[in-house]
Amino acid sequence: MSILVIAEHDNKELSPATLKTLAAAQAIGGDIDVLVAGEGCQAVADEVAKADGVSKVRLADNAVYGHFLAENLGTLVAELAKDYGHILAPATTTGKNFMPRVAALLDVAQVSDIIAVESADTFKRPIYAGNAIATVQSEDAIKVITVRATAFDAVAAEGGNASIEAVDTVIDNDKSEFVGEELAESERPDLTAARVVISGGRGMQNGENFHLLEKVADKLGAAVGASRAAVDAGFVPNDMQVGQTGKIVAPELYIAVGISGAIQHLAGMKDSKVIVAINKDEEAPIFQVADYGLVADLFDVLPELEQAL
């Protein structure tokens, strides 16, 4: 049976999470089609067509999909799903929003947030905030799956040459509508896609001091994150939060600054390849997961680090 992957994008560019979801699809095995649903998103379809291992791109380009409303997208995907054995989407807020609707419309269970593919019907997924890993086997004829993108290495973005086929199905509804959005504007890389992430915690003391992190981030081409403590204290907005209830990241280098290392935070970053902790409290639990620990005052260390890089 073939696999349908739902592309994540903003109508202009493909999200790297899609290339990682394609890697999960390749691990399952079979022909892979990708659905690009959006408005004015031909460029995204062209991008997906070049990705490694894609057989066919299905493009549903219509205003009704412009804001990825779950009511419209869920019904569209459920209608297309009947030709496939697996439906995969990244476990982003968009994927989490519409995929359970797809599963319910198909009358099947959903397997959420997989981190490994054992076979075409058996997957590993974290439960209890990553404090346990479950291996689950799905008996459903169509397997609806969301993928934790950070657990998979992206397929090559170039090299493929898939055909693009238009999907004419238009699904609209009169019960939900998009009103507006406030998206954080940043020159820095996206937290979940960055090679390096530097995060600040309550030890930063206030939001202005995050400039110290930003200066280091600029030297490293890093994204800037925060612990829940820093977000709850009002230092920075919630979309910067790394942790169980925020974003899950797994960069090559994660630098935790003034973060004590609550389980909540560790759940969001402990799969990073190299972890550095900078904290003046040598008893801080963050040091138990750090490859390199520096016990020092962050207000001395950060300017020094910026100079040294």
Partner: peptide, 30 residues
């Protein structure tokens, strides 16, 4: 249920690494 729970394991443990003395040593190690 149509999804069977086959196994539950603890996650892979991360062990603590080393402490570095200063920024110069940190940058050198990285």
């Amino acid at each position: 249920r149509t999804v069977k729970l086959l196994k539950v394991e603890p996650p892979a443990e991360r062990s603590a690494g080393v402490k570095v003395a200063d920024v110069a040593e940190l940058v050198d190690k990285l």
